[in-house]
Simulated assay, not measured.
Amino acid sequence: MPPKLVRVTPAKLATWTDCRRRYRMNYLDRPTPPKSGAWAHNTLGAVVHNALRAFFDLPVERRTPEQAASMVTRNWKGDGFRDVDQQAEYRDRARDWVAHYVEDTDVSEDPIGLERWVSAPVGRIIAEGRVDRIDVRDGELVIVDYKTGRHALTTDDARGSQALALYAVAARRTLRKPCHRVELHHLPTRSVAAWEHTDDTLARHVARAEESADELTVAGDTLAAGGDADILFPPEPGRQCSWCDFRRSCPEGSAVAEDLEPWSMLAP
């Protein structure tokens, strides 16, 4: 029998690459170890994503900067913020971000996908995930990923993103249109980092995903057969442990990284 295809998402692959213990805790351990509370920067990103999805659901004649800003207010959540004053500050920032984004973007066309789930077999994996937005331009699909992080992004970020490449592969098979262009839209800096993939560069991203999928499958099967969890899924202690959701359940991570406040990752 041929080997079973492995379902992978970009988040799953990234977790495996970053820290195998975190992968085990998140995807294999049952019950799942307790996670930390909400992070304000994640809440902020989710609000912006939800606001833009709601905005593009509006009729074209209502897609104005003012409507975009109002969608932030409508979708606002305060999880992880220090207090109401900090909430108000970042709510105003987010309103400005989406309003300026709409000013800079052609919003007269309906995207083919908004928060669209795509899934397709390719090689030894089934690549899948939820794409922020999928446009159609000149007969081809374009993958759009919104970003609200602290730092501006570059062409290298778009080129090297395994997530965007897998979205492109899955989208073209799901929607049956060619897809090579991927874009990172960084709202705080009003900038777009784009990359035009070739079939070869997409294939290289898929090959790396297949390698990770093979590794995580073997580790998971060995664990289920009685293998040593600490050997199969070692931690990767470092600065990133400060914002790991499973820090309290990981002695190595707790020992090397300081506690952060839930709002510590917000841009100053």
Rank of each mutant, 00 (worst) to 15 (best):
P31Y: 04
E66F: 15
R22Y: 13
L28Q: 06
P65N: 08
L28E: 02
D79C: 09
A88R: 12
T64N: 14
P31C: 06
G37R: 09
P59S: 03
L52W: 07
A40T: 00
V47F: 00
H100A: 11
R22S: 11
R95T: 00
R22H: 04
G45K: 10
W97F: 06
Y27V: 01
R82T: 15
A69N: 08
A69P: 06
R30L: 11
Q86H: 07
V47H: 00
Y90F: 09
K77T: 09
D29H: 09
P31V: 01
R93T: 12
T64Q: 08
A99E: 04
F55G: 02
P34R: 10
W97K: 04
R53A: 12
D83Y: 05
R22M: 10
W76Q: 06
T64W: 11
M25I: 02
D92K: 13
L58F: 06
R24L: 13
V98I: 06
N50K: 15
N26P: 05
G80Y: 06
F55V: 04
G45D: 04
R74N: 13
A68M: 02
H49C: 04
Q67V: 14
D83L: 01
Y23H: 07
Q86M: 03
V48S: 03
A99N: 07
A46P: 07
R62S: 12
A69K: 04
R91T: 02
K77C: 11
T43A: 07
V47I: 08
V60G: 03
H41G: 07
R95S: 11
V72S: 08
K35H: 09
A46Y: 13
F55C: 00
Y23W: 02
Y27Q: 07
F56I: 03
G37L: 08
L44W: 06
V84F: 14
G78W: 05
R74Y: 13
V98H: 05
L44G: 09
Y101H: 07
A38F: 03
P33M: 05
H41V: 10
R91G: 02
L28Y: 01
